[in-house]
Simulated assay, not measured.
Amino acid sequence: MKNAVSITPWNDEEHIVSVVVHIRPEYSAAAEQVMDRLTGVERITNDPAGKYVVVISAPTARQVMEQIERIQDIDGVLSAAMIAHHTESSESLDESIELSDVLLEQNIENKNTRRLQ
């Protein structure tokens, strides 16, 4: 293609999104099987009414959107809506962290927020 634009990420990233999927209950079992075969898609929870929370992980936002579109195309899916999107460098995902460090950081942020109010 003469005028095609190639988009190359600046660094090695991982896109992590949460998606709420609503499936007609009578299609749930078949839809679960299809979702379980999609790369980077993990079903987290669901209820008897056919509402699911799904996490999708992929190296690009485009690949995330393609998986959401695949979910929307599954028979019985009424809707699939992204509710959160986080991007993290693959390098930082490989770092180990101590829970005590995370709790300490949150405590400091909470104290600073209270001071500003």
Rank of each mutant, 00 (worst) to 15 (best):
residue 12 D to W: 07
residue 25 P to C: 14
residue 115 R to C: 00
residue 104 L to H: 15
residue 26 E to S: 14
residue 74 I to L: 05
residue 80 A to L: 03
residue 71 I to Y: 05
residue 43 R to C: 07
residue 23 I to D: 06
residue 40 G to D: 12
residue 4 A to N: 08
residue 104 L to Y: 14
residue 22 H to Y: 13
residue 115 R to E: 08
residue 115 R to V: 01
residue 83 I to T: 11
residue 62 R to S: 08
residue 105 E to S: 13
residue 18 S to G: 08
residue 51 K to E: 03
residue 32 E to R: 13
residue 18 S to M: 04
residue 81 A to I: 10
residue 51 K to R: 03
residue 64 V to E: 04
residue 21 V to A: 10
residue 66 E to P: 01
residue 66 E to W: 02
residue 76 G to K: 11
residue 9 P to S: 11
residue 95 E to H: 14
residue 29 A to M: 15
residue 3 N to W: 13
residue 88 E to C: 06
residue 65 M to A: 06
residue 96 S to N: 09
residue 109 E to I: 14
residue 79 S to Y: 07
residue 25 P to R: 14
residue 48 P to R: 05
residue 86 H to P: 00
residue 41 V to W: 00
residue 86 H to R: 10
residue 55 V to N: 05
residue 111 K to F: 15
residue 22 H to N: 13
residue 63 Q to A: 08
residue 99 L to M: 11
residue 102 V to I: 14
residue 82 M to N: 09
residue 11 N to L: 04
residue 71 I to T: 06
residue 27 Y to M: 13
residue 36 D to G: 10
residue 72 Q to I: 06
residue 58 A to G: 07
residue 48 P to T: 03
residue 115 R to N: 03
residue 43 R to H: 06
residue 24 R to L: 12
residue 26 E to P: 08
residue 42 E to S: 04
residue 68 I to K: 00
residue 44 I to G: 02
residue 15 H to I: 12
residue 12 D to Y: 09
residue 72 Q to L: 14
residue 63 Q to W: 06
residue 34 V to T: 12
residue 68 I to H: 00
residue 85 H to M: 07
residue 91 E to C: 01
residue 20 V to R: 05
residue 47 D to V: 07
residue 13 E to Q: 10
residue 41 V to G: 00
residue 23 I to K: 11
residue 75 D to N: 08
residue 32 E to N: 11
residue 31 A to L: 11
residue 69 E to D: 10
residue 14 E to N: 12
residue 7 I to T: 07
residue 67 Q to V: 02
residue 69 E to V: 04
residue 100 S to C: 02
residue 112 N to E: 15
residue 106 Q to N: 08
residue 92 S to M: 14
residue 51 K to H: 03
residue 19 V to T: 08
residue 40 G to T: 13
residue 88 E to K: 12
residue 99 L to H: 02
residue 106 Q to W: 08
residue 24 R to A: 11
residue 36 D to P: 00
residue 73 D to G: 02
residue 68 I to N: 00
residue 103 L to V: 14
residue 33 Q to S: 11
residue 53 V to M: 06
residue 68 I to R: 00
residue 88 E to Q: 13
residue 13 E to P: 01
residue 63 Q to M: 08
residue 80 A to F: 04
residue 66 E to Q: 10
residue 82 M to P: 04
residue 84 A to S: 15
residue 70 R to V: 01
residue 104 L to T: 15
residue 110 N to G: 04
residue 14 E to D: 09
residue 96 S to M: 13
residue 75 D to Q: 08
residue 8 T to M: 11
residue 96 S to I: 12
residue 13 E to D: 09
residue 49 A to W: 01
residue 63 Q to I: 06
residue 55 V to E: 05
residue 102 V to D: 07
residue 95 E to Y: 14
residue 38 L to F: 08
residue 84 A to Q: 15
residue 64 V to K: 01
residue 85 H to E: 07
residue 73 D to Y: 03
residue 25 P to L: 14
residue 44 I to T: 03
residue 18 S to N: 05
residue 56 I to L: 11
residue 104 L to I: 13
residue 72 Q to E: 13
residue 23 I to R: 10
residue 54 V to I: 12
residue 43 R to W: 06
residue 64 V to F: 01
residue 115 R to I: 02
residue 53 V to C: 04
